[in-house]
Design a protein around this nucleic acid. Structure first.
Lengths: 236, 236
DNA sequence: CCAAAAGTGTTCTGTTTACACCCATGT
DNA sequence: ACATGGGTGTAAACAGAACACTTTTGG
């Protein structure tokens, strides 16, 4: 690397694609078949192309792993740029969070699989480079935004019961959420709309559950300011 | 640009350094003396160096404009990577937010000056490239974090009255904040500590104001979850 | 009739805002 | 005394959590 290359670096994009399945938050990883870090699990992604910005690039790269139409939400996380984060070649990475509804079950390439996002500090599968850290950041961002945005729409199917939504939120947040309060909070904010339909009860009976859908399918901040909000002129 | 250069891009770092002065939120810009965008105002920054990550780089670059010790807080904003964001050469930028206390008055290079951050959609000075957008993102991030973190420490002097703090918050947020409530909210969260001292009243009299300081000088989230918080076992 | 699951009503608590009132100082 | 700015007390509004209770189904 000579002096002229100051500022020149390989730029890659990486996506932490998260999904809730079977009460567990999981992330899409592929197993590296080449050195360095052969055999370790890595986030999907690749090099930035000529005519694309980072978001376009990450969606293009994801298309190799999953049907991009199944990705309900994508947002930038953070730049990872430690000089030694990858051996041999200086590489700057823009990391993304991607969310896939729980009903999506894309056909995966043979080297690709879902892995549970563990709460422990260590990574459960051996992850490549700094990808374990990126997954943790993605999880933290999802948890934060579930609380103050309507981001649940990206994890849920088009129609669902409050019980099903409660399981999604519980798995993503890592603690038990009350169905009663979840319904009320989201309803008050206008995030949740009843479709009018009901779901059939299970084999052991029980009252049929009402079906709901998310009012919007783009992310919206529903709880913008916790404090110090601007004085709103109230209607009489 | 040939096929081998896929993924290779110039990587620059840019800093939107904000400060409140005279009741106005302002940003540090320098006037370009070369094409392209000659004469337009740009954010300080420059190319990423070999052995540094983006944060190290932005602090190094800022040292050319202000005394870095006066920068009380720095955080990553977002990557800007539109292929045509700069002419001639593909350049990916990592943008940062920097905050400088209102008392800091660094000596500035002749081509550098503070500019008010305007609320209007158009940029008040003619800004270079996409730097106007970056400034707006920096302002929005500051406004959001003032509400749910202790980030005010980065705008305030070491000791201050609640009135002075109210002016800082009002200028940064763009609307009038009540001194009464500001004091109570920050005090309850343990963000604000009374020093015991008092400030001398103005020439027209008035009760002397108590002096306060921020309890911590690193950013801390003080209002972590608006809703859906985990059940906390309460003490008896 | 009973168990199971879903949904509703009610209460409690904590936070934020709004506003009235009291305090300390200079003229 | 009184104006001026600073501080405190208090009540109202609201959101969320917790929990008891009712509703609707299957066996």
């Amino acid at each position: 690397m000579n002096h002229n290359s100051v500022g020149l670096a390989v730029h890659e994009v990486l996506a932490a694609v998260l999904q809730v399945r079977d009460g567990q938050l999981r992330v899409l990883l592929w197993q590296r078949g080449i050195e360095p870090d052969l055999g370790r699990w890595a986030l999907p992604g690749g090099r930035l192309g000529h005519g694309e910005d980072v978001q376009t690039s990450v969606l293009r790269q994801l298309a190799e792993k999953v049907d991009v139409r199944e990705v309900a939400h994508v947002e930038q996380l953070e730049v990872f740029s430690a000089p030694d984060r990858m051996p041999h070649q200086r590489t700057v990475a823009t990391a993304f969070l991607g969310l896939v509804p729980c009903v999506a079950d894309p056909a995966l390439p043979p080297d690709t699989a879902w892995h549970p996002v563990v709460d422990a500090l260590r990574d459960s599968p051996a992850t490549a480079f700094d990808h374990g850290l990126i997954v943790r950041r993605a999880r933290d961002r999802l948890r934060a935004k579930l609380s103050y945005t309507n981001l649940g729409f990206a994890l849920a199917p088009s129609e669902f019961t409050v019980s099903a939504l409660r399981q999604l939120y519980s798995a993503a947040l890592g603690y038990r959420v009350s169905a009663t309060n979840l319904q009320r909070v989201l309803a008050r904010r206008g995030v949740l709309i009843p479709t009018g339909g009901t779901a059939a009860p299970g084999p052991s009976g029980g009252r049929p559950a009402a079906l709901y859908r998310f009012a919007e399918h783009g992310m919206r901040v529903t709880d913008p300011f916790a404090v110090l909000r601007p004085p709103e002129p109230r209607p009489i």
